[in-house]
C-alpha cells in the first residue's frame, strides 16, 4: 500500500525547538514537501536567517548557509549566482526582511535574483522576545509598543505590506501571500511555494511567498487564539493570494497545446 502521508525526506525527523503553536514548523514542512515532490533535496540550499528560524539548519536535511541579520538576500544572491542550477531558499522573518534587511531585499528583488524568498510574517520579533516588527499591526502590543502600535507615537509608523511594496519592481515575477492558520490556507500556501520554486528553477526572476504565521508565545495567546487572530486581524490587513504573477504561462501546458513542428 502506498503511504498517503509521511514525514518529508527533506526534513530531519527530530522534535523542533519551536514553541507550541508556532507557524515556522508548518512552513518548514511545506517547503520540505515541495522539495521532495520536485526531487530537489540534494540540490537545495537554505539560508537560515537570524531570528527564530536560525535553527532551520537543524531541521532541513540539506546544506545551509547562515548569514548576518537581514543580509540573507545578499548571501542568497552570492550562492545562487555561483550555483544557478540549485534551489536556493532565502528564509526570512519580518525583522530580517523588512527592517534591518530592507535594502538587501529590495535590491535583490529589483535585480531579479533567481532565488525564492520565504517571508515569514508573524508581525513580531520572535527570537528577541516580542518587540515591534515592521509588520506589527496598528494597535498590536509589543514589548517596545507597550500601549499598542501607534503610528504617531515614538516614530512607530505603519505596518509594511511587503508583497505590495515589491510588486512595483520589474525584477519581481511572482509574489504571493499565504497563511498557515487553517488547512485550507496551508494547502494554498503550499501551492504558492511550488509555483515559486518551479519558477526559480526555470530561472524566471525574483519570487517570494509571504506567509502569515502565528506566534502564540509573543502574542501572549493560546495556539487556538493565535490562529483565530491571524484570521480576524492579520488577513483583513494583509490580503491573501497571488499579489503579482508575471510568470511565463505554464511551459508544460503551453508545450502540450502547441502543435508539433511549430517553434
Amino acid at each position: 500500500m502506498e503511504a498517503a502521508y509521511s514525514h518529508p525526506k527533506s526534513l530531519v525527523p527530530v522534535q523542533s525547538k519551536y514553541c507550541p503553536g508556532c507557524g515556522h514548523g508548518i512552513i518548514h514542512r511545506l517547503i520540505a514537501e515541495v522539495i521532495d515532490e520536485m526531487g530537489l533535496q540534494a540540490r537545495s540550499i537554505i539560508t537560515n536567517p537570524v531570528g527564530c528560524a536560525i535553527w532551520a539548519d537543524l531541521y532541513f536535511d540539506f546544506d545551509s548557509v547562515q548569514p548576518a541579520h537581514g543580509r540573507t538576500p545578499a548571501a542568497s544572491t552570492g550562492i545562487k549566482r555561483m550555483l544557478p542550477d540549485h534551489l536556493v531558499v532565502c528564509y526570512q522573518g519580518d525583522g530580517d526582511l523588512a527592517a534591518i534587511g530592507t535594502a538587501e531585499t529590495i535590491h535583490a528583488a529589483n535585480r531579479g535574483e533567481k532565488f525564492t524568498t520565504i517571508f515569514v510574517n508573524n508581525a513580531i520579533y520572535g527570537m528577541t522576545g516580542g518587540q515591534m516588527a515592521p509588520t506589527t499591526l496598528v494597535g498590536q502590543y509589543a514589548t517596545t509598543a507597550p500601549y499598542g502600535r501607534d503610528p504617531d507615537v515614538a516614530g512607530m509608523g505603519y505596518p509594511i505590506k511587503v508583497c505590495e511594496l515589491l510588486a512595483t519592481l520589474q525584477g519581481t515575477k511572482y509574489l504571493a501571500r499565504g497563511a498557515v492558520n487553517n488547512p485550507v490556507n496551508v494547502k494554498k500556501t503550499k501551492k504558492y511555494i511550488r509555483t515559486a520554486f518551479e519558477a526559480q528553477m526555470r530561472g524566471e526572476g525574483f519570487t517570494m511567498v509571504e506567509i502569515l504565521s502565528q506566534c502564540p508565545t509573543n502574542w501572549k495567546m493560546s495556539p487556538v487564539q493565535s490562529v483565530e487572530w491571524v484570521e480576524s486581524s492579520m488577513i483583513p490587513f494583509y490580503p491573501l493570494g497571488e499579489i503579482k504573477n508575471t510568470l511565463q504561462p505554464d511551459p508544460a501546458a503551453a508545450a502540450a497545446v502547441k502543435p508539433a513542428g511549430v517553434r
Binding site: P67, T77, G78, K80
Partner: peptide
C-alpha cells in the same frame, strides 16, 4: 546596493 550587501554577497559566494 551597499558595501554591506557586497560583503554579504561575498559571504554567500564564498560558502
Amino acid at each position: 546596493e551597499s558595501e554591506v550587501a557586497a560583503i554579504n554577497m561575498v559571504y554567500g559566494a564564498a560558502s
